[in-house]
């Protein structure tokens, strides 16, 4: 896994091979940008340093800690 915060085109191609999907070469830059923008905060997250937050989302009517 790359340490860079930016997803590279090579990384996009490697992921495509791994999951067995094809995206036209002339559209890879658009897909890379789409994923890179969405990944900015995930890649900035140091999961070891941040406090434990479970990925579950609850929607309680009682108005608890989580909406």
């Amino acid at each position: 896994m790359s340490e860079s915060k930016e997803l590279t085109l090579d990384e996009v191609r490697a992921r495509m091979r791994a999951v067995g999907v094809t995206i036209a070469e002339n559209r890879l830059a658009m897909v890379r940008k789409l994923l890179s923008d969405a990944l900015v905060h995930v890649r900035a997250l140091d999961s070891r340093a941040s406090k434990t937050v479970e990925p579950a989302v609850r929607f309680g009517a009682g108005g608890g800690d989580q909406p």
Binding site: V12, R15, M16, V21, T22, I23, A38, V42, L45, P55
Partner: peptide
């Protein structure tokens, strides 16, 4: 293309996005 981009999201990234969401 957008849907196939979803195939390229790793399990770890999906999980971290849900943690950010929480």
């Amino acid at each position: 293309e957008r849907l196939l981009a979803g195939a390229l999201v790793t399990a770890s990234e999906y999980t971290q996005a849900q943690r950010i969401r929480a």
